[in-house]
Design a protein around this nucleic acid. Structure first.
Lengths: 197, 197
DNA sequence: AAAATAACCAAGCGCTTGCTTGCTTAAAAA
DNA sequence: TTTTTAAGCAAGCAAGCGCTTGGTTATTTT
């Protein structure tokens, strides 16, 4: 029984609510520290009910990461569509990524560390999705080299960049003095060697 | 009964073996996913024995992080002792930090994320230790600004740098083609804006 | 030699965990 | 109107969890 008789047929899948609750808790407390009871309660259900929508807790983790990553990818595509200038593109990529980390409710990149718990097949699938996500980054870095703004775009550069952005979740607070735009500016300046505008 | 009658009085504290085993497992599988039985087995004990040396699993985590951090600090001090040139100092700081991440057996920086599990008092204590660890970094960055090698050393710069190094644990493999020295070179080059030597 | 201590082991307690099973009911399909 | 389906709930099971307790033995101290 759908626990609400009102709202005729509109409301979207209840599965999504479980997914969102799980994503938030996984990020907040970590995968292992989050119980399926926590998730059920956060979604307003009884303890066994999430298992109607997901076969196992691991399955739920996999879905959280993959669907969250897909959302970040969509956000990324929207941010750079039609933008040709490489520096502008880079800035938008950085800003969109930080947005996925701090603004969105399903921030997948944070959960890379939790993939430990998954089996090899799931890990490979997630790694492939991450690789796809990073393709526009490498292309943009290459373009910056071609126009002389950067001197080299060997693969480690992209990984350094990606890493420094992801780690910012350990120190940046969105409600602090620094805006997300300023954070993005700072990151780009760091990459370009503090050559200020 | 100390399980070995040989080795008269030499062998160091058995506590240390528990600590090391815990450190390795916490890094490998994460704090929550590691059971006290895992730790006991890795140290060659029965399941309850670690609790002779540590009051609780959380206490063990705290000790792993604090003592690991102290070891990294010692390594850091040894690396920069008597070195005056700022760029040389920076390079040594970076190299020593990567060494703590990949070579040492108790690599504390990786466990920052696991402090979630600890109470506020322990977290504060660890944060203070981390702040101490970062003091030489900020000093060196300031010196690089003073000599004109960097244009700015505002606090985010140090955090970006620290973050990109720490995140390298997600992609760098010490047994791969790239040596740790080369990795350190690459990181410094990234910070200086790819101005190659 | 006697007493104290350090460093465990063997056994298990109470609780939490992921997950299952059988039932129920609102809504949709026939 | 009857039947089927989607979406749960109530209850609980077996395994695993952190941790305790009471004893045991090699070593150290007195």
């Amino acid at each position: 029984m759908p626990r609400r008789k009102t709202e005729p047929a509109a409301e979207a899948n209840r599965r999504t609510e479980v997914l969102r609750a799980a994503a938030r808790l996984f990020v907040e407390k970590g995968f292992e520290a989050t119980t399926t009871r926590d998730i059920a309660e956060a979604a307003g259900m009884r303890s066994g009910s999430p298992f109607y929508h997901f076969r196992s807790k691991l399955d739920l983790l996999k879905a959280v990461i993959l669907e969250g990553l897909a959302a970040s990818e969509a956000r990324q595509q929207a941010a750079i569509a039609g933008v040709d200038d490489p520096l502008d593109r880079l800035h938008r990529l950085v800003r969109a990524h930080l947005g996925s980390l701090f603004e969105h409710d399903t921030n997948a990149p944070l959960l890379i560390g939790e993939t430990r718990a998954l089996d090899a097949a799931a890990r490979r699938q997630i790694a492939e999705a991450f690789d796809r996500y990073q393709i526009p980054w490498q292309q943009t870095l290459d373009a910056l080299v071609a126009q002389g703004t950067l001197t080299s775009a060997a693969p480690p550069l992209r990984l350094w960049l990606f890493g420094m952005l992801n780690w910012s979740t350990h120190w940046y607070r969105p409600d602090g003095a620094m805006t997300l735009d300023a954070l993005a500016d700072s990151a780009v300046a760091m990459l370009l060697g503090q050559a200020p505008g």
